[in-house]
Amino acid sequence: MRELAGRRRSGVQGRRPAAAIALAGLVVLGSGVPASAQTAAGPVTRCQIADPRLPEVSGLVVVGDRMLAMNDGGDQVDVYELDGECQVLTVQSAPLDPFDPEDLAVGADGTVWLADTGDNNAARETVALLALRPDGSSEVYRLAYPDRPRDVEALLLAPDGTPYLVSKEVLGASKVYRPVSALVGSGTVGLTEVAGVEFTLTGTPGGPVGRAGQLMVTGGAVSADGRYLALRTYTDAYVWPLSGSDVAGALAAEPTRIALPEAPQGEAISFTADATGLVVAGEGVPSDVTVVPLTAPPEPAAASEAGAAADPFPGGGTGVSPIAAGVVAALIAAAVVWIGGRLRRRD
Results as ranks from 00 to 15, higher is better:
Q48A: 11
A253C: 05
T126M: 09
V61S: 01
R46H: 13
D274V: 14
Q48E: 14
V239K: 07
T295Y: 13
L231D: 05
R227S: 10
P159G: 06
I332R: 08
Y228F: 14
V112D: 01
P149H: 04
P255F: 00
D147S: 12
A296T: 15
A19S: 12
A329L: 12
N71H: 04
V285L: 10
V140W: 05
A182L: 10
G185N: 11
A35R: 11
A273S: 14
A309M: 14
S181L: 10
L23V: 11
T233E: 01
F99N: 08
T188M: 07
G14D: 11
S321T: 15
P286T: 10
E193W: 07
A333M: 05
E254S: 15
D225Q: 12
F313H: 06
S287I: 04
P293D: 12
A253H: 10
G172P: 00
A35T: 12
C47R: 11
S138Q: 01
V285A: 08
L29W: 03
L4M: 08
I258K: 05
A335F: 03
D160I: 04
P95T: 00
V189A: 10
L26Q: 14
A221K: 03
A158H: 00
V62L: 12
A330L: 15
R124C: 01
E81G: 01
G64V: 09
I269F: 07
R148Y: 13
G282Q: 09
D236A: 10
A253P: 00
G110E: 11
Q76S: 10
A224P: 10
E81V: 13
G244V: 12
P52L: 02
G210P: 03
A306Y: 05
D151S: 04
L251D: 00
A221W: 03
V279K: 07
G107F: 03
G266A: 00
D83V: 04
D83L: 04
S270L: 03
V28Q: 05
G25L: 14
G30P: 06
L251S: 00
L343I: 13
V12Q: 12
A24E: 15
A115L: 04
C47H: 10
A131V: 02
V289Q: 04
V180F: 07
G6E: 04
E85M: 06
R7T: 13
T117C: 05
P55L: 06
V91K: 01
L54H: 01
A303R: 12
S245Y: 09
Q92I: 02
V27T: 13
V180S: 13
P255G: 00
A275V: 13
N121I: 02
A18K: 15
P255R: 04
P149T: 07
G307D: 06
A273Q: 14
G319Q: 06
D97E: 12
Y80P: 04
A131S: 08
E305A: 14
P261F: 07
A41M: 10
P261C: 03
S181T: 13
Y141M: 04
G30E: 02
G110T: 09
D75N: 11
Q76H: 08
R178M: 15
G190H: 09
A19I: 10
D83C: 02
A195C: 05
P98Q: 00
T233Y: 03
R211Q: 12
E254V: 05
R345G: 15
P264T: 13
L130Q: 01
L68K: 02
P322H: 07
G14W: 06
T295V: 09
S304E: 15
E299D: 12
V194R: 10
L171W: 07
W338L: 00
L242K: 11
A308Q: 11
